[in-house]
Design a protein around this nucleic acid. Structure first.
Lengths: 230, 230
DNA sequence: GGAGTATTTCACACAATTGTGACAGTGATA
DNA sequence: TATCACTGTCACAATTGTGTGAAATACTCC
């Protein structure tokens, strides 16, 4: 559950408070004091989650959120809104604008951490530390291990991330470029065929326990992880 | 829902705005600043949708739209008109001229994206990722699978696209050249007989589940995909 | 029924895509 | 420094998909 979190908040003391709390929970934090600054950071590297103040100088929080939702690259980044208001109407507007959750200041660090965890669990399952199970295949992010039946599989870092992504996003075709974005990371430049090689490596790890058939080639489109054969 | 969109707009700043928004939504964009330039681009490669400014230097937007509608090859391309005017009369004229929708400047990027999505869904259903069902035949673009009853059919890339097109455009006759345009792509140079061969291949895939009769030959005209037997 | 078309079907060359093993570079570790 | 695990890329092999003629079959209209 170690995520990169962008904090957008103009009040330095509140920002500092957030940063300290988040870092102590093991997250990596980047900070912005305005929507404009935040936008630059988002362009440079995509965070896993955004904590966004409702009231910002210049462009407002909801406006910024709406803008993120319009852009395909940023549309899926979870957003938690922070507000001083208790107005129920604002809450509705915020959620309509595409926020995933909503926190009214002042909030306890415990609440903050809990909500972040909840949102990540829903929107970025591969970031959580939950065990993932597909059939008799179990992947444990905490111990960084993969079990097939009860055997432990020996698996490299990239293959681990690839398998984790597949297991948390099964039953759909992922193109090579999508896999590069999601598993290798945004803004990474490697050959698309590199995906094939790692698929191969992952398959040969899974072969030992006959799980290699879970990774299916979809000719002309990409790869699919699926429990149902064919 | 990744479409190729032609933007025809003479104001460079507005054009740039449109392009950025569209590209970030995953669309491919080509640009023209005049009707003449647009016409050349359309000749070179047919876009999936055209965003057309009402006021253009030289030939006007509505004139250009009318012209597109006259040509069989371009008659079916969806058009969204952009205008600064709010005049209701213009709106009517625009729609009469063959526009599919109409946007009054200034408009929000959100509105833009939403309208494009709506128009594509109506006019180019095979670009969306919705599951398509005809009788007991189900095609799922997300997993890239076709089910007949509960069996998964093994189907090649071209046959998949062909079936997807048929299922999203049922109950009407498609000539071989229309199929080549829509399934193979505009400006692809292959023999019309090739369609027959792929129809044959698709039919033999569907034969396994007795769905081959859905594809009907219309002598002298082409093929029709129909749930109601003739 | 038969001529004249229009489709269906088949086999095959070759194109395109994917699988695979080898290799060199990189960093971390001992 | 030597060793080791891991990565990305390449070349080549294996596999699968594609378009085309040509022959076989079906259909339509005298």
């Amino acid at each position: 559950m170690a995520a990169t979190i962008l904090v957008v908040e103009d009040d330095p003391s509140i920002r500092e408070l957030l940063v300290i709390n988040l870092e102590s929970t093991g997250h990596r934090v980047i900070e912005a004091s305005s929507a404009e600054e935040a936008e630059q950071l988002v362009t440079a590297s995509l965070p896993d989650l955004i904590l966004l103040d409702w009231m910002l100088p210049g462009r407002s929080g909801p406006q910024f959120a709406a803008r993120l939702r319009e852009n395909e690259r940023t549309a899926e980044v979870p957003i938690i809104m922070l507000t001083a208001r208790t107005d129920e109407q604002d809450r509705v507007t915020g959620l309509e604008m595409g926020a995933d959750d909503y926190m009214v200041k002042p909030f306890s660090p415990r609440e903050l951490v809990a909500r972040i965890k909840a949102v990540l669990r829903r929107r970025k399952p591969q970031l959580t530390e939950d065990k993932v199970t597909v059939g008799s295949l179990v992947l444990d992010p905490v111990t960084h291990r993969v079990y097939a039946n009860d055997e432990t599989l020996v698996i490299g870092p990239t293959e681990f991330r690839l398998l984790h992504f597949f297991m948390t996003h099964p039953e759909r075709v992922h193109s090579r470029s999508q896999l590069l974005d999601k598993v290798w990371g945004d803004h990474v430049f490697v050959e698309e065929r590199t995906v094939d090689v790692h698929i191969r490596r992952l398959r040969s790890v899974l072969e030992a326990s006959d799980h290699d058939s879970l990774i299916q080639t979809v000719r002309g489109s990409g790869y699919r992880f699926s429990a149902t054969l064919t």
